[in-house]
């Protein structure tokens, strides 16, 4: 039975980290209707900034973690200000192409540093022994990762539901012209959406980097790996990202635990989430929590 519960725990751990990584994509899409293809690069940048501050400058890791979120907050805000603001009102495809271009630029910049082609790992700052309860184990890294994920997701949910800025962001997401007519600054909301996405990406990067080690290719791949999570949850739903992340994590672990290596199957842990995604989208084309917009003419 512990085999089953271990898989459940691992699925939740993996899924919650997917959710955090997906959050940045949701935030940008929610406000600007743009899929950000440079998200993985920001995840990687956040992880490397934390590493640099901790290892090279000797800053305690907790402060490095906060500082990296702060830096990526302004980095993403600057990206929006310099490259994307002038594209407000332009066709979405143009904006998406710009994010693809940005991904290439970030790649190039990171390749200029040792982080582009070397492997690193964070210094151990948590106990290395696992926590074992009833035969089910979880590492401190995973536990802290899950706690940070849920705290951040809670904060973002509160921010969008209760704060004035968050409500104005939702208003822009619903109807840009309507929001403008009541005095909301759409460019400011866009900048803030990118900035918060940068912040969450840095948090995700640090957590993933703690689990997999710091390798640029692995880290920035997560910007793409979490796309199915965002689509399943509904592109503009934070709750959707959380639920879909955990569903994906559980499917992956259960497929890997019960299907792989049996019945002549292999690699189902990677494929099965996509199969389930396709099935769900057949019935709910806007994802589990996505808004189904009806345009009346």
């Amino acid at each position: 039975m512990s085999y089953f519960f271990q898989i459940v725990v691992s699925g939740i751990v993996v899924g919650s980290i997917y959710a955090l990584a997906a959050l940045g994509l949701v935030l940008v899409y929610k406000s600007s209707r743009v899929a950000n293809f440079a998200h993985g690069q920001i995840i990687a940048a956040g992880a490397f900034i934390t590493f640099f501050l901790t290892v090279r400058l000797g800053v305690p890791i907790f402060f490095s973690f906060l500082a990296s979120m702060f830096i990526t907050f302004f980095l993403a805000m600057s990206v929006e200000r310099i490259f994307l603001r002038r594209l407000i009102g332009e066709p979405i495809i143009s904006v998406i192409m710009v994010t693809i271009g940005l991904a290439s630029i970030f790649d190039g910049l990171i390749y200029l540093t040792p982080f582009g082609s070397e492997n690193f790992s964070f210094p151990a700052f948590l106990p290395t022994e696992s926590i074992v309860v009833g035969g089910v184990s979880i590492s401190w890294t995973q536990l802290v990762g899950v706690i940070i994920t849920f705290v951040l997701i809670g904060c973002f949910s509160w921010f969008f539901k209760k704060s004035t800025v968050g409500i104005s962001m939702r208003a822009v997401s619903d109807d840009q012209f309507g929001a403008m007519s009541v005095g909301i600054s759409v460019p400011r909301v866009f900048a803030l959406a990118w900035a918060t996405a940068g912040l969450s990406a840095a948090a995700a990067g640090c957590i993933i980097g703690n689990i997999t080690g710091l390798n640029f290719e692995t880290l920035h791949a997560f910007g793409i790996v979490v796309f199915p999570v965002v689509i399943l949850g509904g592109l503009d739903s934070i709750l959707g990202a959380v639920v879909a992340g955990i569903i994906m994590g559980l499917i992956q672990q259960f497929a890997s635990g019960y299907l792989d290596g049996n019945f002549g199957l292999n690699g189902t842990g990677d494929v099965m989430p996509y199969i389930i995604l396709l099935i769900i989208l057949l019935f709910k084309p806007h994802g589990l929590f996505g808004i189904h917009e009806i345009e009346r003419v």
């Binding site: 085999y3 691992s10 791949a221 635990g257 792989d260 290596g261």
Partner: peptide, 22 residues
Amino acid sequence: VEVVEHGTDLDNTAMLQRLQSK
């Protein structure tokens, strides 16, 4: 006993447990 072709995995718990059980 088994061949595992890995993906971009964040956690190999299920795979490791499966290998042990076999």
